[in-house]
Amino acid sequence: MAIIEVKKLSKNFKVKLKEKGFKGSIKSIFKPKHKIVKAVKNISFNVEKGEIVAFIGPNGAGKSTTIKMLTSILFPDKGSIKVLGLNPMQDRKKLAYEIGTVFGQKEQLWTHLTPYDNFKFFGAIYDIPDAAVERKIEELKVLFELDDFINTPVRNLSLGQRIRCEIVASLIHNPKILFLDEPTIGLDPVVKENIRSLIKRMNKEYKTTIFLTSHDVGDIEKLCKRVIIINNGQIVLDDSMENLKYHYLNKKIVEAKMKEKINLDDEDGITILKDKGYNLKIEVDTTKRSVADAIKLLNPDNIIDINISNIPLEDIISNIYKNKD
C-alpha cells in the first residue's frame, strides 16, 4: 500500500511585480501588477512504506512547494494528497503526530537552550510522557552520536551538529514518515557524508519512510533507491536509482593538476573537457572505464591535486530532455 499518494497536484503563486525606481514604486501602489507563477503543475506519484525517496531538482523547481503541501503547510490549488491515508489539509493535527519534518533553511530549535531541553520541549508538543521522552532521547543520542554536545546551548553548535539535532528533534515522536527539505544545504562535504549515513542508518533501524528534497546529486546517490526529478513544476523522471545511474549518472568529472603533461586523446571512455597545460579536466564514462582506472592513466605519482565530482544536476536534466525528444 502506498504511504504517500499524490494525484494531479497543482499549486500557483501570485507574485506581485514591482518595477524599478521611484516611478515604479508609485505605479505599484495604484496599479499593482501580478504574475501567476505555476510552481507545481499537475504532478502524480506514490511512495511506498519504508522507501527512501529523493525529490530533486534545481532551485525553484517546485520541490519545496510539493513537500510543503504534503506536510499541511501549503494549500494545494488542485489535485489530491493522501499521506498515511490522511488529507494533510483536513487532518493536519492527526497527521502531525505521524510525521516528522526537517527544513534545512528554517530552524525549529530554541538556540539558547541545550539540545536536551529542546528535545523535552518537542516531547511536550507531541504529548509524550516524560519517562518515554527520556528513553527516546537516550536512544537517539547514541544513534546520532550527540553525546559530546547534548548539554551545550544550540547557538554554540556547528551547523552540522545543529542539523543532527534538528533531525533528532523531529524523531522524538516516532514518526512513520520523515520529510527532509534540503537537509544538507550549506554543509561541508565531510559533514554531508556524515548526515547521509545517519539518515540511512535511521531508515534501517526504524523503517521510517523518508522523503527528501535536494539539489545535490550526492545526496541521492548515497541514500536512495528511488529518485523523482522535478523541473519547472513537472516531474521529468521517476525512476529507480539503478536506472538513473546507468543512464545518466554514469559520468564523473575529474579535474587534476599535473606535474607533467599527459596525452589522453585516444583513450576509450574519456572525454577531454579542458586541457590547459598542467590543468586537466576530463569526463569519465564509468560504463566503459572505472574512475580508478582513469586515475591510473593519469599516473598517481604525476598528480599534484585532484578533484572528482558528479555531473551537475542541470546537465542531467537537460540530458533527460534530450533523450525524450
Binding site: 506536510t71 503547510i73 502531525a96 528554517k106 525549529q108 508538543i125 507531541y126 504529548d127
Partner: peptide
C-alpha cells in the same frame, strides 16, 4: 517570512 511553517507541522 514563512516562519509559520514550524507551527503548522506541530499537532497543536
Amino acid at each position: 517570512t514563512g516562519k509559520l511553517d514550524a507551527y503548522i507541522v506541530q499537532p497543536k
